[in-house]
């Protein structure tokens, strides 16, 4: 067994290592297959784009803009829901855990953003006090349309155990319109993901 690796390192029946730089002889399969493939695709695209434009235009004229384009927007929107990255109380711990390695909310396209200008959905995760109420409304108004609100946990849903307290808003729906309520004190990350999937169902049926 003297130096078997040295024999294996050189391919069988290979050309000698020197004097083999002619492209036509060295790489015949790549050069012959790739170029006609690209040319055919380019020609097809040149024909396809005007044809597709014409077909799509007639389809829109026939069935209406909302029926043809709106599902595409809904499909894109519901699969890239960006929630506002903020936390009010202990539900924010579960909110943060949902984006960790174990539950990984990013597989649903849910990526928390730090600026309300880049967000689609506000997840109200915690107790809302009257002191923070106008800041919450400001953040909501800074989000671009279309936008949704998820009330996460009992406090955001209805005030929770602090409902009759002097400083707590009894439900965030007193301040902003809420689309999905998630029960729990706090809800587990699975429950939060379930609420996001419920919101995706709402967006799927969105008409206007």
């Amino acid at each position: 067994m003297t130096a078997p690796t040295a024999q294996l390192a050189r391919p069988k029946e290979s050309a000698p290592p020197s004097g083999s730089l002619e492209l036509g002889t060295e790489l015949p399969m790549v050069g012959e297959a790739a170029v006609p493939f690209l040319e055919i695709e380019t020609l097809r695209a040149k024909e396809f784009i005007p044809a597709a434009k014409e077909a799509l235009g007639s389809l829109i004229a026939e069935q209406g803009h909302a029926k043809v384009i709106r599902p595409v927007f809904n499909w894109a929107g519901r699969n890239s829901l960006f929630p506002l990255h903020w936390g009010l109380a202990c539900c924010a711990i579960e909110f943060a855990a949902a984006f960790g390695a174990r539950w990984d909310a990013e597989r649903f396209g849910v990526v928390p953003r730090s600026s309300p200008r880049q967000c689609d959905v506000m997840i109200v995760n915690g107790t809302v006090t009257w002191k923070v109420a106008h800041k919450l409304i400001t953040l909501y108004e800074q989000m671009p349309e279309p936008k949704w609100v998820i009330a996460m946990g009992n406090c955001a849903t209805g005030g929770g155990p602090f409902r009759t307290a002097y400083s707590v808003v009894p439900g965030v729906d007193k301040l902003v319109p809420v689309d999905v309520y998630i029960a729990g004190c706090p809800p587990r990350p699975e429950a939060m993901l379930d609420g996001i999937l419920e919101l995706e169902k709402l967006i799927r049926e969105r008409k206007e």
Partner: peptide, 23 residues
């Protein structure tokens, strides 16, 4: 508490409000 909040919630005369009334 928010600016302009008139109540003194830890006084014994402060009644526990109904949420709607407090709102």
């Amino acid at each position: 508490t928010p600016d302009g909040y008139e109540f003194r919630p830890l006084l014994r005369s402060f009644k526990l409000h109904e949420p709607e009334e407090l709102e």
